[in-house]
């Protein structure tokens, strides 16, 4: 192919239209309605899906992190200890199990988790570790409470 100008070269670059579109259609194969067969609609939903997939990988980690916390908290409540007191006591005892492991133990190894809470109880009572105070709203401005100067 002979290009007389650079503009023509730029315009004609890239794979053939069929192959270019086929990449997108392959990703959109399982979509519903026109977003599966109609390129201009398919490309939109494919792009959106890819962005979601990228963001989702990060969200998945956050979700699991929250799930571990929930599981440890549930296990702690079973043994009458506050989550923060539990974590602090373990840290002071130099028991460096991470939250993932603690959650696993809380789920699948109840006796081991009981042993850990026992240790935490002991340490907390020795050191006087108290649960952190809940956030309290100290001042709520009411209508007319602020004086005009």
């Amino acid at each position: 192919m002979v290009f007389t100008t650079a503009v023509n070269f730029v315009r004609s670059r890239g794979p053939d239209e069929f192959w270019r579109k086929r990449k997108v259609f392959k990703l959109a194969a399982a979509y519903i309605g026109r977003s599966r067969n109609c390129y201009s609609i398919a490309i939109r939903s494919v792009h959106r899906a890819l962005v979601y997939a990228t963001k989702g990988r990060k969200l998945k980690k956050e979700d699991f992190s929250n799930l571990w916390d929930t599981r440890i908290t549930a296990g702690c409540e079973q043994h009458d200890i506050n989550y923060h007191v539990f974590k602090e006591s373990l840290a002071r005892n130099n028991i460096l199990l991470n939250r993932n492991t603690l959650a696993t133990l809380a789920c699948w190894e109840p006796f081991t988790f009981k042993a850990l809470t026992d240790i935490a109880h002991k340490r907390a009572s020795e050191d006087g570790i108290t649960p952190p105070k809940e956030n309290k709203v100290l001042y709520i401005p009411k209508r007319g409470s602020q004086s005009k100067n």
Partner: peptide
């Protein structure tokens, strides 16, 4: 405050293997 908590913990069942 610490004293109160200590008493609360003291009432809970736990291992008593400390010297």
């Amino acid at each position: 405050m610490a004293g109160v908590v200590r008493r609360i913990f003291a009432n809970l069942p736990r291992i008593n293997t400390c010297n």
